[in-house]
Amino acid sequence: MPQTGAPQDFASVYDRYFARVYGFVRSQVGDPAAADDVVSRIFERVLERLASFDPARGAFESWLFAVARNAVRDHFRSRRQPLWDGAGDDPPSREPAMDERLVAAEERHRLLLVLRSLDERSREVLGLKFQAGLNNRQIAEVLDLGESHVGVLVYRAVKKLQAGLGGLP
């Protein structure tokens, strides 16, 4: 499927983008069940609006992740709480990982723990860059910012993430 074309097959869109959409949403939302809920709403909207997507107005991925970003913001707006305050999350496990799955889960947990301590803009940029897999130009389209500004935001956000991970055991 071309990235800038107008995909007609919802199944292929879902299969191609689910992990990236979920990864972005999960990096913004502190609860996996809430992330499932938000992702469900995103793909429902995509299903409804896919036929009306106009490639002349922008790349498909920029459109898709703009839908995802709006859904995340709607989620927090409807709950009337700040974007991911981390309340209710468990602390990262200190138990030694027993197999690869546990190691991966522990790594996810550490990353998410630090992500939640970052400011909203940094978390958004990191999610779009490293989970959604967008380049700086696409992120600039989604966030309505300049491309060079996005580059600066990514760099600063990575340094914040690095500092946060350095403070973890």
Binding site: G23, D36, F43, R108, L111
Partner: peptide
């Protein structure tokens, strides 16, 4: 810093989803 960015890029957060397959079936 590059290693930190790579860690985040390689983290499979979608592994936590509980609706991936059921949502696909429902929407299709």
């Amino acid at each position: 810093a590059l290693a930190v960015a790579a860690r985040l890029a390689q983290a499979d957060l979608a592994a936590e989803s509980r609706v991936r397959h059921s949502l696909r079936a429902r929407l299709l």
